[in-house]
Design a protein around this nucleic acid. Structure first.
Lengths: 151, 151
DNA sequence: TATTTTTGGTTGTGATTGCAACTATATTGA
DNA sequence: TCAATATAGTTGCAATCACAACCAAAAATA
């Protein structure tokens, strides 16, 4: 145990770190320049849209987007304040609440999609070959396979 | 132009985003739990150590670690306040300064390395095969190939 | 059932970030 | 040479984040 990583391992991680920062920066600045909310909003809204009818508990959202609970709680505050989601009392668990997307929330998703997707296509999709992307996805999902919900 | 990304492209990006968040979270919390400074400090110090003698201008560091200039400026403030780097006047450009790592800075690098590397090895290095990591690195460096210094 | 522990979520507070405005020096170009 | 513009870095401020402490309900345990 406690084996040191190979040089390639560290290089891979650094590349992951940098390329992520690079892409994220591009996405965020594109969204902002169009007057759209940041990517985190999109991520959460998208998860909510996928289960539109039933809604999601905060801990479920947290598990999906990997945001810790206090940040998520306040993110939901902001979404709610902007009318993009609703906090509903949760019948089976008095502690929690059930978050549902509103139609305004869906509208934001629709508006953000072209901007978001264009950046990703331009800076990522067209740079790599299709099979490279598929392989990348496979490999990274192995890493994430271990992921559990953040506290 | 303005082509929509394929489904795989978007999936790949999402996987990149989530796995990065996951790994970063692990690294940061490991560092913190050992009383060590955050990863950004490490990144900057490492770049400085690579050119120990000559030092680096802030814009050079910025180009390497992809931090924008105002955040970097304040990060250097913190490093300097903790005695890990020195800001030296820059002879050929009166606007800028030349940042150099101190021996205390090198010591921090040394202390952080085992903690940092252990997490990466455990959560990344051992999960993937060596050739998967090499390929991942290659592909991501293509993405980053376009990267220029952030404003 | 009563007590303890765990879980879901919120909130106070200080640190960090992002944006925009700013200073000062360098570079360009008329 | 002198004005205009670009670049390097800093700073004020508001928004966001991380940590810890907290509350309330649920689950586990006695």
């Amino acid at each position: 145990m406690n084996k040191a990583p190979t040089k390639e391992t560290m290089e891979g991680w650094i590349q992951l770190h940098r390329s992520h920062r690079y892409l994220l920066e591009r996405v965020e600045s594109a969204l902002k320049s169009e007057g759209l909310p940041p990517l985190d909003w999109y991520d959460v809204l998208l998860e909510l849209k996928r289960v539109k009818k039933t809604g999601l508990r905060q801990y479920e959202i947290s598990g999906k987007v990997l945001l810790n609970k206090h940040n998520l709680s306040r993110l939901i505050d902001r979404l709610e304040k902007n009318g993009l989601v609703q906090r509903n009392a949760c019948p089976e668990d008095g502690r929690g609440n059930l978050i549902k997307i509103t139609s305004a929330g869906e509208k934001v998703l629709k508006q953000a999609w072209p901007v978001y997707s264009h950046v990703i296509e331009e800076s990522f999709g067209t740079i790599l070959k299709s099979d490279e992307i598929v392989e990348l996805t496979r490999v990274l999902s192995l890493v994430l396979g271990r992921a559990e919900r953040l506290t």
